[in-house]
Amino acid sequence: SKSGWILAKLDAWSARPAPRTLDLVDGAVLPWLGGEISLRLDPTGVRTSVRRDDDGLVLRHDPDLSGELRVRTLTAALQRFYTRQGQALMAPRVEAYAAQLGRPVRKVIVRDQKRRWGSCAADGTIRLNWRLMGFPEALIDYVCAHEAAHLVEHNHSPAYWRVVAGLMPDWRARRDRMRADADRWVAF
């Protein structure tokens, strides 16, 4: 009885662009705050590290790394960089939205989440996905406001959406844009 709906969803799913893959080569381009940032590999280090310079990201690594170990090591370094930058950018935004609501945030944690952009625990801990750092700041703000609103309403009821609208009147447009274009901003 649901075969028409299922087939339509499968067609829509197959029409979506393939997720971006991480190409660990010099000059690769990664999503960054709605735009792109270039990656320069610097095989002159012993310890793997990532830093920003005027031209983009510089990923310093051991020149002897190869194969799967190289991929895992460099990917982990990039993830740590995105996570640190995400913490610095998103935590103050969540706290500002929470302050508008008069609610305390216990802690903001940016981490690897496979299936969610964010979550809010009953104790006031808000977790955000480091992959948001590929998104435009307007959409990052939407996720921060969305999670802060859960400090007031721990559900997605009409009352919850009124809280979100109080923080961000154009939340629907931002949510729709996230749903439509998320794949183009996810780094890896």
Rank of each mutant, 00 (worst) to 15 (best):
residue 110 V to A: 02
residue 84 R to S: 03
residue 65 L to R: 02
residue 79 Q to Y: 02
residue 153 E to L: 02
residue 83 T to R: 14
residue 75 T to R: 05
residue 148 A to L: 08
residue 65 L to P: 07
residue 128 L to N: 07
residue 140 I to K: 03
residue 163 V to P: 09
residue 62 D to L: 03
residue 122 A to R: 06
residue 121 A to N: 15
residue 138 A to E: 15
residue 142 Y to N: 11
residue 79 Q to L: 10
residue 143 V to I: 15
residue 114 K to F: 05
residue 134 G to W: 13
residue 120 C to W: 07
residue 138 A to T: 12
residue 170 D to M: 08
residue 156 H to L: 11
residue 98 A to F: 08
residue 106 R to V: 07
residue 143 V to N: 12
residue 155 N to I: 11
residue 82 Y to P: 04
residue 145 A to K: 05
residue 141 D to W: 03
residue 98 A to L: 12
residue 57 L to E: 07
residue 125 T to E: 15
residue 80 R to D: 14
residue 135 F to C: 13
residue 147 E to C: 09
residue 68 E to V: 14
residue 136 P to D: 14
residue 72 R to E: 15
residue 103 R to H: 13
residue 128 L to M: 08
residue 117 W to I: 06
residue 118 G to K: 00
residue 137 E to D: 12
residue 86 G to H: 01
residue 131 R to Y: 00
residue 81 F to H: 06
residue 140 I to F: 03
residue 104 P to G: 00
residue 107 K to E: 15
residue 118 G to D: 11
residue 59 L to M: 13
residue 159 A to D: 15
residue 100 Q to C: 14
residue 91 A to R: 08
residue 77 A to E: 11
residue 101 L to T: 09
residue 126 I to S: 00
residue 135 F to T: 00
residue 118 G to I: 03
residue 156 H to Y: 14
residue 104 P to M: 09
residue 66 S to M: 05
residue 75 T to A: 14
residue 130 W to T: 01
residue 143 V to H: 04
residue 59 L to F: 04
residue 67 G to S: 09
residue 95 E to Q: 15
residue 123 D to T: 08
residue 75 T to G: 11
residue 57 L to D: 10
residue 171 W to L: 12
residue 114 K to L: 10
residue 134 G to F: 11
residue 169 P to M: 07
residue 130 W to L: 14
residue 135 F to S: 06
residue 111 R to F: 10
residue 133 M to T: 01
residue 137 E to P: 02
residue 60 R to W: 00
residue 63 P to K: 06
residue 94 V to K: 03
residue 72 R to S: 13
residue 169 P to Y: 02
residue 166 G to N: 08
residue 149 A to M: 10
residue 119 S to K: 08
residue 65 L to W: 07
residue 101 L to Y: 06
residue 60 R to E: 14
residue 104 P to L: 12
residue 112 D to W: 07
residue 107 K to G: 01
residue 96 A to C: 12
residue 129 N to G: 02
residue 91 A to G: 09
residue 85 Q to A: 13
residue 150 H to K: 01
residue 103 R to C: 12
residue 166 G to H: 01
residue 108 V to H: 00
residue 69 L to G: 05
residue 90 M to N: 04
residue 89 L to D: 06
residue 107 K to M: 13
residue 109 I to E: 03
residue 122 A to M: 14
residue 141 D to V: 01
residue 131 R to E: 11
residue 166 G to R: 09
residue 106 R to N: 09
residue 130 W to P: 00
residue 83 T to Y: 04
residue 108 V to P: 01
residue 147 E to T: 02
residue 131 R to W: 03
residue 130 W to C: 05
residue 56 G to Y: 09
residue 139 L to D: 01
residue 94 V to L: 11
residue 135 F to V: 14
residue 101 L to C: 07
residue 98 A to V: 10
residue 72 R to L: 15
residue 68 E to G: 03
residue 161 W to A: 02
residue 113 Q to I: 05
residue 97 Y to R: 12
residue 115 R to G: 04
residue 135 F to W: 13
residue 76 A to V: 08
residue 152 V to W: 01
residue 150 H to M: 12
residue 157 S to Q: 11
residue 125 T to M: 12
residue 108 V to A: 00
residue 80 R to E: 13
residue 119 S to P: 04
residue 137 E to R: 00
residue 167 L to D: 04
residue 71 V to W: 13
residue 140 I to E: 05
residue 124 G to F: 12
